[in-house]
């Protein structure tokens, strides 16, 4: 077969091009470790999501040093949790599943993008080097309000990120001869122990206590005040730990019927 010299050049060049394509993708996969979203995540029945240990409570969890897992749920027409807060410079694995129809989980402007299929758990591991705010959208048409399906992904500076929660238990109403007990509980969702100064204020009474909360543990601080010292009427309380604050009002009233939410054991 007689092949013209120029055609030989062209054939060779096309071969080089194909080899080049394969080489770049191999470099991406082997050299950079880039992966496609596959079916390595397990399956889950969409109607059992609420009972699931992970997706029943969509959240961010620390699983190791600089390693976090996000359990997220997509549904018509929202993402849970929203916003999702993760630290920068950490390995974050998103586990995403759907309650209803096919959605997607696309962190706008990045390659962090996966379909979210009911029954399947999509697993995506990424590391954000820079803190920033990202939009989260659904790119699979999923219904009438598909265009409104969005969420927020906040990548925070390592020092700013925590999984600390403050919960306060306080009575709504107390008898004038009773005691008001306000309990502030600090929960540390991270693995490393944290130091927090917990402040509980009620009327003129202030309780300030430094607590050390071990990883995955919680610590409580209780302020007890005699209702008689405050007198009848409404009294505001505030509890804070770090930059978290909770506040409320307790009423000292004669003949109150419901002594709800603890503090009634006086």
């Amino acid at each position: 077969m007689r092949i013209h010299q120029y055609e030989r050049v062209w054939l060779l060049a096309s071969m080089v091009l194909i080899v080049g394509f394969i080489a770049t993708i191999t470099y991406g996969a082997v050299g950079l470790g880039i992966t496609m979203v596959d079916d390595r995540g397990a399956t889950i029945a969409p109607d059992e999501i609420n009972e699931d240990e992970r997706f029943g409570d969509p959240r961010v969890e620390q699983v190791g040093d600089d390693e976090y897992e996000v359990y997220a749920v997509a549904m018509t027409f929202a993402f849970q949790p929203d916003p999702i807060e993760i630290p920068a410079d950490s390995e974050v694995t998103f586990y995403v599943t759907s309650r209803d129809v096919i959605h997607s989980f696309y962190v706008v402007g990045t390659n962090t993008n996966t379909m979210v299929i009911p029954g399947e758990i999509s697993v995506v591991t990424v590391e954000f080097d820079e803190p920033g705010e990202y939009g989260l959208i659904c790119t699979e048409y999923c219904g009438a309000a598909h265009h409104e399906m969005e969420g927020q992904l906040a990548v925070l500076e390592d020092e700013e990120f925590d999984l600390t929660e403050l919960e306060v238990e306080a009575p709504d109403e107390v008898e004038p001869d009773g005691e008001i007990e306000i309990t502030a509980t600090v929960t540390n969702g991270q693995l490393e122990a944290i130091e927090e100064t917990v402040t509980v204020e009620l009327g003129d009474e202030t309780l300030e206590e430094s607590v050390t909360v071990e990883g995955d543990e919680s610590e409580s601080v209780t302020l007890t005040v005699d209702a008689a010292d405050l007198g009848e009427g409404d009294h505001d309380w505030t509890a804070s730990a770090g930059d978290l604050t909770e506040s409320g009002t307790v009423s000292v009233v004669e003949g109150s019927e419901d002594d709800t939410e603890g503090g009634d054991d006086a």
Binding site: G20, I34, N111, T125
Partner: peptide, 18 residues
């Protein structure tokens, strides 16, 4: 191809990794 892969694709960090 170089633009698509190295700028458009690899530039949109982060990319899912193994």
């Amino acid at each position: 191809w170089l633009f698509t892969y190295f700028v458009e694709f690899l530039g949109n960090v982060p990319t899912p990794v193994v």
